[in-house]
Amino acid sequence: MSEHEIHSEVDGLSLTELLERYATLRDTLLGLEAERDALGARIKAALQSGQQAETELYRAVLKISRRVDYPIDRFRDTFGDAAALEAATIDRKKAEALAGAGDLDPEQLRELAVVKETQALVLQPKTR
């Protein structure tokens, strides 16, 4: 449905009717998102156990993302308060920049790193 068609459809509605339509759409979307999340959790669990899932159009795969964090207490114990304050107020990139500039020992920084993995369910289109 084009934006023009949507505007035509709702132009004659009162504010109360617009609100009712908006609430209906919002509630529908929330219900669909909850169902999608529940289905996704079950599919992810199945994929993690070694099962495979695919349809005519899609193959379900798990995409793994990694995020590196530095625990603030260990970082401060290793590099001191000033470096912890400077790095913690910015982010991981700032800590790595300090190591790259020679202000922090890169090897000690690597030893402090905590890598967190997350898995996202991805629908991979099958080639046609």
Rank of each mutant, 00 (worst) to 15 (best):
G40I: 01
A45W: 00
L19T: 09
K63Q: 09
T118N: 10
D91N: 12
E86F: 07
K44I: 15
E20S: 04
Q48A: 11
E9M: 13
E111L: 15
A45N: 00
K116G: 07
L62Q: 04
K116S: 13
A83W: 04
G50F: 09
V115D: 05
S8C: 11
Y58P: 00
G80T: 13
I43V: 15
T78C: 03
T28W: 07
Q52V: 14
A113G: 08
P106S: 09
K63D: 05
R21D: 13
Y22H: 12
R92E: 11
P106M: 07
Q52W: 12
E56W: 14
D91P: 04
L109M: 06
A97N: 08
D81M: 06
L39N: 03
A34K: 12
A113M: 02
T118F: 04
V10F: 13
L57D: 08
G12C: 00
L121S: 03
T78F: 01
L112C: 12
I90R: 15
L29Y: 05
A97Q: 15
S8R: 15
L62C: 08
L85E: 13
E96N: 14
D103L: 08
I90H: 13
A120K: 10
E35K: 00
Y58L: 10
E35S: 02
H7M: 13
G12Q: 05
L25Q: 07
A34D: 11
E86A: 12
L13N: 01
Q108K: 11
Y70G: 02
A84L: 04
E20G: 02
D77R: 09
R67L: 03
G100S: 13
G100W: 09
E33C: 05
K116R: 14
I72P: 11
V61H: 05
E117S: 14
Q119F: 08
T89H: 14
A87K: 02
E17P: 01
R66F: 04
G12H: 08
L39C: 08
L104H: 10
S49R: 12
G12F: 00
L30C: 01
E107L: 14
K94G: 13
T78S: 03
S14N: 02
E86C: 07
D73S: 14
P71L: 02
R76P: 09
E107A: 14
L19Y: 07
I64K: 12
K63G: 04
G102T: 06
S14T: 12
A34L: 10
Y22D: 14
A34M: 07
A113I: 00
E96H: 09
Q51D: 12
S49D: 15
D77C: 01
A120P: 00
Y22W: 14
A97Y: 04
R92A: 12
K93G: 10
L62R: 03
L29H: 02
S14W: 03
Y58Q: 05
S14I: 04
R67I: 09
T89R: 14
E96R: 13
T55W: 03
S14Q: 02
L39E: 03
L18I: 15
R66Y: 07
H7I: 13
P71E: 07
Y58S: 02
Y70S: 03
L13P: 01
Q108S: 11
A84G: 06
E20W: 01
R76A: 12
R67A: 10
T118V: 08
A83D: 06
